[in-house]
Amino acid sequence: MIAFEHVGKRYGGRFDALANLDFRVRRGEMVFLTGHSGAGKSSLLRLLMRLERPSRGRILVAGHDIDRLHASQVPFYRRQIGVVFQDHQLLFDRSIYHNVALPLEIQGAEPREAARRVRAALDKVGLLHREKALPIELSGGEQQRVGIARAVVNKPALLLADEPTGNLDPQLSADIMALFEDFHRIGTTVMVASHDLALIARLRHRTLRLQEGRLVADEEAA
């Protein structure tokens, strides 16, 4: 599903944020990305979303070199990736329902079909009863679940999450991770960046560890 081939990313011409990354992720796999702050986790995910382009090497997603995508194709590429952000990136002037519906609106989905999928996604994260609320009325954990619902509403083949539990207490973090495991179980390829080592250790999935932009460990689930 994902192949990094000797990928390097250099910011500002001097500083290597990522160096010589070489790994593969199989379809349907669930992978954790760890490393302390500044190790390059976000940079790696941004490369995958094609928000940045590699300075060296190639990134293949489903066999396609994503650096070769024309600018006009990039939106269509992104529609097939669900992304969960640490700070949710919700739109605060519209309801939970319309936040989750946003990807479908962008794709021009038929409204009745969209409504069905939005409700299904909200039901999955346990927030169906809050669909009319505004994001500001929700707790941090609930907002993050809305972010997840939005990421999965168009059933992406690949789900990326950048520190989705960063601001949450341990119990909420575990709940969120359990959601990602559910999507993994139905066949979605999932990649979660996190530095919550205790939680990751308990969940037993493949873990890529970055340190100063290098891949220092690639441990299969025990």
Binding site: R27, H64, I66, F76, R79, Q80, I81, Q107, A157
Partner: peptide, 17 residues
Amino acid sequence: MSRETPSRRGARAQRAT
């Protein structure tokens, strides 16, 4: 992952008349 997508579900979602 261009338009001839790996995900059948994704493909169905994308395909529109």
